[in-house]
Computed example of a mutant assay.
Amino acid sequence: MLLSARLAALFLMTPLLYAVPMPGSVRVLFALGLSAALSLPLAWSADVLPTGPGDLAASFLSELALGATLGLGILMAFSGFETAGRLLDVQIGFGMAQVLDPVTRRQVPVLTSVFGSLALLIFFLVDGHHALLRGVAFSLERFPVGRAWSIGSTAEPLVRQAAGLFTLGFALAAPVVLSLLLLEFALGVVSRNLPQANMLALGIPVKIVAGMLALSILGGGMGAVMLRVYADIYRTWAGMFELAPAGGRR
């Protein structure tokens, strides 16, 4: 039960279980089944179990907080893709067009939704879910179930990841943003030489067409940056595990 609280909080903080519509009961059963599968071979790590209702409630809240902290590392990585999508939406002109994002269930601009869905697709294609499960299993060794943990061992890696979030998000959109910046210069020159032309009416469709062409041409070069974003998840977790005291055998 304590392990399922950690896993439920972890997956609640991430868009992984929300990519495909499924009932809430299925998500609950998934968390319970996964916690049972992990607790059987790693039962030795639960060496400090609560003995009373008060200890059980405190351990339950502690596991929820730990799962949310681990999930925050995943959430910030996917937020990098959302940052890139919002930058492009503003630059291209899609910022006013809102669509329903199937992952977050909220209204977001068009390219923000596309980048979010693409991030989930690539995450599964590069076997990120397998690495995630290995990280969860290793967290049971570094943070045993039922044992108190220090927030100080997790704060530094999370702050470091948050500091690089905007940089990686901008790196995803940088080629297209640079192309649109050059287009803005060109439109400015045309506006100075042809003052009778309505640049507002002419510039919006030109920017949309040029932005989509640049995105389709330069999109293939985003793969290396996307892998860096995913690697930040496990780099953050590795920092948490290194700073945490060893809680069990290796």
Rank of each mutant, 00 (worst) to 15 (best):
Ala97Pro: 01
Gly95Arg: 14
Gly146Asn: 08
Pro175Asn: 03
Met76Ala: 11
Leu87Asn: 07
Glu184Met: 00
Arg86Asp: 13
Glu82Pro: 02
Gly73Glu: 04
Phe143Ala: 10
Gly169Asp: 02
Gly73Met: 09
Thr167Gln: 15
Val145Cys: 02
Val136Thr: 13
Val136Asn: 04
Val103Ser: 10
Gly73Tyr: 06
Leu75Glu: 15
Ser117Lys: 12
Ala137Pro: 09
Ser191Ala: 05
Ala84Ser: 15
Gly93Met: 09
Gly128Ile: 06
Leu140Trp: 10
Gly146Phe: 04
Val108Met: 15
Ile92Asp: 01
Leu132His: 09
Ile122Ser: 07
Ala131Asn: 03
Arg134Asp: 12
Pro175Ala: 13
Arg142Glu: 14
Pro109Met: 00
Leu133Asn: 08
His129Asn: 10
Pro109His: 12
Val136Asp: 12
Gly152Glu: 10
Ser191Asp: 01
Ala148Pro: 15
Phe124Val: 03
Pro144Arg: 02
Thr112Gly: 15
Phe94Val: 10
Leu168Thr: 08
Leu111His: 03
Ala163His: 07
Phe78His: 00
Val189His: 05
Ser150Val: 10
Leu165Val: 07
Leu158Ile: 03
Leu120Tyr: 03
Ile151Gly: 01
Ala174Glu: 14
Leu75Arg: 04
Ser113Thr: 15
Ser179Gly: 13
His130Cys: 10
Gly85Ser: 03
Leu187Ser: 08
Leu165Ser: 09
Val177Tyr: 05
Leu125Met: 05
Pro175Leu: 09
Phe170Gln: 05
Ala97Arg: 14
Ala97Ser: 15
Ala131Cys: 08
Phe123Thr: 06
Leu168Pro: 04
Ala155Gln: 09
Glu156Asp: 14
Val103Lys: 08
Gly116Phe: 02
Leu182Met: 09
Val110Trp: 07
Leu72Gln: 07
Leu182Ala: 13
Leu181Asp: 13
Glu82Asn: 03
Asp89Ala: 03
Ala137Gly: 08
Trp149Gln: 04
Leu87Gly: 10
Arg106Lys: 11
Leu168Arg: 15
Glu141Leu: 05
Leu133Cys: 01
Leu187Phe: 05
Val190Phe: 01
Ala77Leu: 09
Gly95Asp: 15
Leu183His: 07
Ala155Trp: 06
Val189Lys: 05
Pro157Asn: 07
Asp127Ala: 11
Leu121Ile: 07
Ile92Leu: 02
Glu184Gln: 13
Leu72Val: 03
Ser150Phe: 11
Ala84Cys: 10
Leu140Ser: 06
Gly80Ser: 14
Leu132Ala: 03
Gly188Ile: 06
Gly85Glu: 06
Leu125Tyr: 09
Gly169His: 01
Val145Pro: 10
Val177Pro: 04
Leu168Ser: 13
Arg106Ser: 06
Gly85Trp: 13
Leu180Asp: 07
Leu125Ser: 11
Arg160Glu: 06
Leu187Tyr: 02
Gln107Thr: 07
Val189Asn: 01
